[in-house]
Each structure stands twice: as structure tokens, then as C-alpha cells.
């Protein structure tokens, strides 16, 4: 027998992933920036002297100055406050839509992949059909039928974003399914549901985490796009996409596009870097 160190702490694979991730400085900085951004958009409106829907026609389209850091829009509303509030909406939409995508996609994909056979074919054809629906058409249809509604944005975005996730998860599940430890779980008499819940899904966390960080920016872009088309959030509530859309209609006031745009780009960039960092940490052999 070999020597055994009693003090040694057990280290899970995820702990190892964490320690590799922490070594990736770019990803770490991006994660830090993201945390700051979230904190900022949540806190800043509380301390702002302006309300996001407070109009002041005397101060219409004022360039950035000491009182209105990001300037004001055509109705004299403070752009800094509006950018922060728009950030709240954007992050909220991203968060909820991503959550829907992760839950639905993981469960759907792992069941299809693990059970296989006709059920897999059926479930994946449903995904194919949803895929082939033109998204814009779908979004416009929802809005015309149910009117403009905050929840509809989640439904519209959620309905498309889980499709990719379920495909990724299904593929991963199918390769996991033939691992011997799954066979070992089968022969120890575990039911299919238990095997999926206890043995398949924990092994999927890595790829799901990576894919989630890459889903968030997609969702943000989609929501910004919907807002840009006037299908998303309704005035005076705002989001980054809506702010950019308003600003783009009025290009003489450059700050109206610049600031929300900067925030949006920064967020997207950070999410992508974090996602890449996670992917590298989970698969240390690649990208070296």
C-alpha cells in the first residue's frame, strides 16, 4: 500500500476546472467587469437624482456634462439613468431567457439523447420544426395576437434559444450513454430517470455552463434586435436595444447611440470571453 496523506483534501473535477479558469486572466477580468456591470445597473438608478421617465423639455438633447453624465435625449431625460435602467431590463431578459433555455434544453436534450430510438427521433423532429419557423415571423405573430407585453419577449426568446441547447446536450448525452459508468449504473438497477438525473446531468454541467455563457449574448442581441424593431420593451421603459434604436434615429446627438452601445458591446464581449475561458478550463488539452 502506498502512503496516504490524511490531510489531503478531496478535489472534485469542478474544483480543478475552477483553478484552471482562475489562471485565465482575461476571462477573470471579464467576469469581474460583468459583476461590476450588474452591480452598477442595479444600484445606480437608486442613487441617481433623475428618474428614468422624468422629462425636462428645457434640457432636450444636451451633450454629456457634469450634471447629465451621458447627456439627455430629445425629451430631456437623463441618459445615464436610462442606460442603467435599460441595463436592468436587458440583464433581466437575458437571465430569464437563458434560464429557460438551460432548463428546457438540458432536460429535453438529455431525455432525447439517453432514451434514444423513436422518442429521440420524435423529439428532435419537433426541434427541427421549431427551428424552421422564421423567428421574426414568430415574434411578430405573438405581438400581434397578444399585444405588446413584457412576458411575450421572454416567451419569444425562450422558445428559440433552448433549441440549440437541447441539440448540444443531446449530442453530449449520446456520447456519455455508452460510457461504462452509465452501464454500471444500469446494472446496479437504477431506473432511467435516476440515471439521467444523477449520472448524465452532472456530467453535462461543464458543456451546459459553457453554452450558457454563450447563450446570454445571443439572447441579449435578440432582445436588442426585437427592441430595435419596436417589438420589445415599451416606452417609457427601456432597454439597451431600444436606446440604441432611438439614438440611431437621431444621429446628430452621438451620445445617444454611443453610451448604450458601449455598454452593450462591453457586456457581450465579456460574456464571450468568460465563455471561452470556461471552455478552455473544461478542456485543457485544446487551444494550447
Amino acid at each position: 500500500m502506498f502512503k496516504f496523506n490524511q490531510q489531503a483534501n478531496s478535489e472534485s473535477l469542478y474544483l480543478q476546472v475552477y483553478s484552471r479558469f482562475v489562471k485565465n486572466k482575461v476571462a477573470l477580468v471579464c467576469l469581474f467587469i460583468l459583476a461590476l456591470l450588474v452591480l452598477l445597473v442595479v444600484m445606480a438608478p437608486w442613487f441617481s437624482p433623475y428618474r428614468y421617465d422624468e422629462t425636462n423639455f428645457g434640457l432636450s438633447q444636451v451633450a454629456p456634462n457634469l450634471h447629465n453624465w451621458f447627456g439627455t435625449d430629445s425629451l430631456g431625460r437623463d441618459l445615464f439613468t436610462r442606460t442603467m435602467v435599460g441595463g436592468r431590463t436587458t440583464f433581466l431578459i437575458a437571465f430569464i431567457a437563458t434560464l429557460v433555455s438551460v432548463f428546457l434544453g438540458t432536460i429535453y436534450g438529455s431525455i432525447a439523447g439517453y432514451v434514444g430510438g423513436w422518442l429521440d427521433s420524435l423529439m428532435m423532429r419537433i426541434v427541427d420544426i421549431l427551428y424552421s419557423l422564421p423567428f421574426l415571423f414568430f415574434a411578430i405573430l405573438l405581438v400581434t395576437f397578444f399585444g405588446r407585453n413584457f412576458i411575450l419577449i421572454f416567451v419569444a426568446i425562450g422558445a428559440v434559444s433552448w433549441l440549440d441547447m437541447s441539440r448540444v446536450v443531446r449530442g453530449q448525452t449520446m456520447s456519455l450513454k455508452h460510457k461504462i459508468f452509465i452501464e454500471a449504473a444500469q446494472i446496479s438497477g437504477l431506473s432511467q430517470i435516476k440515471i439521467i438525473a444523477k449520472h448524465i446531468i452532472p456530467n453535462l454541467i461543464g458543456i451546459v455552463a459553457v453554452y450558457t455563457t454563450l447563450t446570454v449574448p445571443t439572447v441579449i442581441v435578440i432582445s436588442a434586435f426585437l427592441s430595435f424593431l419596436g417589438l420589445g420593451v415599451q416606452e417609457p421603459m427601456t432597454s439597451w436595444g431600444l436606446l440604441i434604436s432611438d439614438g440611431a434615429a437621431n444621429l446628430t446627438s452621438w451620445w445617444l447611440v454611443l453610451f448604450p452601445g458601449l455598454f452593450l458591446v462591453l457586456t457581450l464581449l465579456c460574456f464571450n470571453f468568460v465563455g471561452n475561458g470556461l471552455r478552455d478550463a473544461l478542456d485543457p488539452r485544446e487551444h494550447r
Binding site: 472534485s12 461504462i180 452501464e183 452532472p202
Partner: peptide
Amino acid sequence: RGDRICMIFQDPMSSLNPYLT
């Protein structure tokens, strides 16, 4: 299976779930 008949496999490296204790 698992109760009255059990089985051990050829490759111990892959017959345990890597993410569970």
C-alpha cells in the same frame, strides 16, 4: 441486477462517474 446479480468491468478507469464522489 445490482441486488442479486452484480457485475464489474474491464476498465476501472471509466466505470465510475467522474463527477460524483
